[in-house]
Computed example of a mutant assay.
Amino acid sequence: MKLDRIFIFFILLLLGILFYWVCYLGYNQESYRKQQTQTTDPSIVKNILMSEEKHKNLGLQSSPGFLYSQPSLLVGSRTDVVSVTPWLAPIVWEGTFDSSLIDSMYKKKNITIATTVFALGKYTRFLKEFLESAEQHYFVGYRVRYYLFTDRPEEVPEIKLGEEHYLTILKVPSMDRWQDISMGRMEILEKLTKSELASEADYIFCLDVDAKFYGPWGVETLGRLVAVIHPWFYGYPRDQFTYERRPESQAFIPAGEGDYYYTAAAFGGTFKEVHELTKYCREQQSIDASKATEAIWHDESHLNKYLLYNKPSKLLSPEYLWRDISMRTSQVKVIRLSHVAKNNEEVRQNA
Rank of each mutant, 00 (worst) to 15 (best):
Q136K: 15
W93Q: 02
T40I: 14
D41K: 09
W178C: 09
E187C: 09
D4S: 07
T221L: 01
Y142M: 00
A89H: 00
L189M: 10
P216G: 12
K108F: 07
K342E: 05
T40C: 10
G95Y: 00
G65L: 05
D80E: 05
R282Y: 11
S317G: 03
E30V: 10
L303Q: 10
L189P: 06
I296W: 13
G76C: 10
F139L: 01
D239N: 15
G162Q: 03
V117N: 03
P231V: 02
T278Q: 06
S338W: 00
P237D: 12
D98E: 01
E164L: 08
F139H: 03
G258A: 10
V209Q: 09
P42I: 04
I188A: 06
S199P: 03
L189Q: 04
K279P: 02
T193V: 02
A134P: 04
Y20G: 08
A227Q: 01
L120V: 13
E345C: 08
E283N: 11
I188G: 03
K191M: 07
Y146E: 02
M50R: 07
N350Y: 09
F241C: 05
Y138F: 04
W217K: 05
H302G: 04
A119R: 01
G235Y: 10
E158R: 13
V75M: 10
T193G: 00
R33H: 15
V172N: 00
E155R: 13
F66P: 02
F19S: 14
S330I: 11
F139K: 00
P157T: 02
G95E: 06
E346I: 14
P157E: 03
G268M: 05
D259P: 01
V22K: 14
K212D: 06
E53Q: 09
I8Y: 09
R238T: 14
D239Y: 14
M105Q: 11
N57K: 11
T221G: 02
Y261Q: 00
A266V: 08
Y24M: 10
F233R: 10
Q285H: 14
A114K: 13
P157K: 02
T293S: 08
L337R: 10
T293K: 15
L14M: 11
D324Q: 09
Y20Q: 11
D98F: 02
R282N: 12
K311Y: 11
T40K: 09
G258I: 08
Y68S: 13
S133T: 00
M183I: 10
K109L: 14
A341Y: 09
I253G: 03
N28G: 06
Y20N: 09
A292D: 14
D239K: 13
T96E: 04
Q38G: 08
E283R: 06
S62P: 00
E187G: 14
M175L: 12
Y68D: 10
E200N: 07
H275R: 05
V82W: 07
